[in-house]
């Protein structure tokens, strides 16, 4: 086999323009975050204080856990509608386990319940071949009904001893480990790489050795697991479980990930950093707008307009790609 090296064609100016455009579209979310931080610092004066950063970390923590897993499913071009309801349901199960079995039991219970729900979602789509949208929608209805029937009164309290579990240091350590695991799993292991190929074309992935069914099943299992973990942290953060827990998480994840610059139809340009960045942007937005006094009606209007603006700027417009 002749061992001549690959012929490197020189960079034509058309390639340069393409490279610049690509760099710009990855930089936009970072730029957006920077602009928001600077804007709110000017408007409120005490945005960049240590306690506010801690508040942002606390608020964004569960969204970070959920959206990092959400990226796995979105890389295949699907969406998991049952994510929020699953987190709420795991929160209820964890609280019940903590009160009736033992506080420590809440951790395994939350994770196992979340995993089981994720696997049922995966099973419905791979083996039973049900359309992903309907399967997740029904799972959402079922879980919401189950959560509401399990909770008596407005909410159930977790044991008082657990009030001091949630310290900033523990959350930070768990957060960094979780982020590291998810980033490695998405960028440096077969799981993430193969899920991205499913977003491009399942048939081509199948012919390159990707077990399509197993990978989709795994993606939903990971999201279920993350919902379980988020449910546990919801319990610690809200002191128990309520019927409204996790109600807006599904849409928050989708909005956060899109803000972070993820391509919604998945495929080659999906990136895990979109989840971290997107969570930061959404949390900074909510926090900053309230501090700057826009917490009333205009809050959702500004969020909607910014969301539209980010999408308009970041997605690349290829006329012949079929957009559903």
């Amino acid at each position: 086999m002749s061992t001549n090296t690959a012929v490197r064609t020189k960079k034509s100016d058309e390639d340069k323009k393409l490279a610049f455009k690509k760099a710009l579209s990855t930089a936009i979310p970072y730029l957006g975050l920077l602009i928001l931080i600077v804007l709110f610092q000017i408007l409120t004066g005490n945005f960049l204080t240590a306690s506010n950063l801690e508040a942002i970390f606390d608020q964004g923590f569960t969204l970070l856990i959920a959206s990092m897993a959400g990226v796995f499913v979105m890389a295949t071009g699907n969406l998991d509608f049952s994510l929020g309801a699953n987190a709420g349901f795991c929160c209820v199960c964890a609280t019940l386990a903590a009160t009736y079995i033992h506080p420590i039991a809440s951790i395994p219970v939350a994770i196992i319940v979340g995993l089981i729900v994720g696997m049922v979602n995966g099973f419905a789509q791979t083996v039973l071949r049900l359309p992903s949208f309907i399967a997740c929608l029904c799972m959402m209805f079922i879980l919401t009904a189950a959560t509401q029937s399990l909770i008596t009164g407005s909410s159930i309290m977790m044991p008082v001893s657990m009030m001091f579990w949630e310290t900033f240091a523990r959350k930070l350590i768990f957060g960094i480990i979780y982020m590291a695991v998810m980033i490695v799993m998405f960028k440096y292991t077969r799981v993430g790489k193969e899920l991205k190929t499913l977003g491009v074309s399942p048939e081509a992935a199948r012919q390159s050795g990707v077990n399509v069914k197993k990978r989709i099943f795994l993606a939903y299992a990971i999201t279920g697991l993350a919902a379980g973990i988020a449910g546990f942290w919801f319990m610690l953060r809200t002191g128990g479980a309520a019927t409204t827990t996790g109600q807006t998480t599904t849409s928050d994840v989708i909005i956060a990930v899109v803000f972070g610059g993820m391509s919604v139809s998945g495929g080659a340009s999906s990136k895990i950093s979109a989840a971290i960045l997107g969570t930061l942007i959404v949390t900074v937005l909510n926090n900053g707008m309230v501090m700057a006094g826009f917490g009333g009606d205009p809050q959702q209007l500004v969020k909607g307009l910014l969301f539209l603006l980010v999408i308009a700027v970041s997605t690349k417009r290829d006329p012949n790609v079929i957009i559903k």
Binding site: T44, N46, Q59, T238, T248, Q299
Partner: peptide
């Protein structure tokens, strides 16, 4: 008078409290 009108769920109520407190 400062307001946070987005507190629909339990975790959002806490987040709203944090935001308002950080807002001074």
């Amino acid at each position: 008078f400062v307001m946070d009108g987005s507190a629909v769920s339990a975790e959002q109520t806490i987040a709203a409290a944090e935001n308002l407190i950080q807002g001074g």
